[in-house]
């Protein structure tokens, strides 16, 4: 087990009478890219705000790099880069001046290569432009530049691709993966674009109504999502006989256009293909059909509702 970079234990946060976070516990190891998945108002941003100290806690504790307590956390937060909700900067100052001010505030050398930093987030040559003249996407990118200012070891990014064009989304993804790969930066990220999230995250946490309902690695997620083997054959009857008698699979369904879906995870596609061919069944397609992150999440919520109805 690697070093625990971020740990949260029994976090609860109340707004009025309702819980925005309800007994949330989470552990993120060094080098992980942890994707936080949840609906609007599920508690993702609140969790991030609590971690970065923007919001106060009702109960529970947060640990960063093994530090906890007010003073320890304040010290540890200097090693963390945050971008939570819409970025905020001085509108009348240029991008470079805004970053320079934060360099001064954080005790970083002002001579730091700010133009290089801006270029790395896709803002080359606009260092002298006022923040108020920036487009929504450029503002997001500047927020990201502030987050990675000072080479943080942990990045907390809340919807970092909001307002970005497809090229921008791809650049942000590349940047996150590069920082993770080259500098070993640990990332806690949330996004509404679940497809995007699934392409970068190594671990996932599903949050619903302030509760962390599931936590799993991308391998586990992949295994759970890949739940059907879909094959199109020229002879359905023969294919079913092979499935039942040779592969021992009884959990399958026949669909129109000679398509069969096998829901038995133990059946290996390469063996099935060989057996079908040996028994004279022509296979025109054979593929693993699975749910994507979005479908898995929706399924999880439905299960949650079903469980809630039981009690």
């Amino acid at each position: 087990m690697g070093e625990i970079v971020l740990s949260a234990c029994g976090l609860s946060k109340k707004y009025g009478l309702s819980y925005a976070l309800d007994d949330v516990s989470i552990e993120i190891e060094r080098g992980q890219i942890f994707g936080l998945v949840g609906k609007n108002g599920a508690g993702k941003t609140t969790l991030m705000r609590v971690v970065c100290g923007q919001s106060t806690l009702f109960s529970g504790s947060v640990g960063l790099f093994g530090h906890s307590g007010k003073r320890g956390l304040a010290e540890a937060r200097t090693r963390v880069g945050f971008m939570i909700e819409a970025p905020a900067f001085y509108p009348k100052l240029s991008a470079r001046e805004n970053l320079k001010i934060y360099c001064m505030k954080r005790g970083l050398p002002v001579s730091e290569n700010l133009d290089g930093l801006l270029a790395s987030v896709g803002l080359p040559g606009v260092g002298g432009k006022r923040y108020s003249e920036f487009s929504l996407g450029m503002k997001e990118r500047l927020g990201l530049a502030l987050a990675i200012l000072g080479d943080p070891e942990l990045l907390v990014l809340d919807e970092p691709t909001n307002g970005l064009d497809p090229i921008g989304i791809s650049q942000v993804r590349e940047l996150i993966l590069r920082l993770n790969r080259e500098r070993g930066v640990t990332v806690l990220i949330s996004s509404h674009i679940l497809k995007e999230l699934s392409s970068v995250a190594t671990h996932f946490g599903f949050i619903h109504n302030g509760r962390l309902i599931e936590q799993l690695s991308s391998k586990e997620l992949h295994a759970r999502c890949s739940d059907a083997l879909s094959l199109t054959v020229d002879d359905v009857e023969k294919a079913c006989a092979v499935l039942e008698n040779i592969c021992g699979c009884r959990n399958y369904k026949i669909f129109p256009h000679n398509t069969i879906r096998c829901y038995d995870g133990a059946v290996r596609p390469e063996l099935l293909n060989r057996e079908l061919n040996e028994n004279g069944v022509g296979v025109s397609s054979l593929m693993r059909e699975g749910k994507d992150l979005e479908a898995y999440f929706i399924g999880l919520l439905k299960e949650g509702r079903a469980n809630a109805q039981l009690y």
């Binding site: 970065c52 100290g53 923007q54 007010k70 956390l73 304040a74 010290e75 540890a76 937060r77 200097t78 963390v80 945050f82 939570i84 909700e85 819409a86 905020a88 900067f89 001085y90 509108p91 934060y102 505030k105 954080r106 502030l146 907390v156």
Partner: peptide, 18 residues
């Protein structure tokens, strides 16, 4: 007040400032 209205304190808090 300017920092308060622009929502800039969140950047300071996130930077580990007391």
């Amino acid at each position: 007040r300017e920092d308060m209205q622009l929502g800039l304190y969140k950047n300071d808090m996130a930077g580990g400032a007391s």
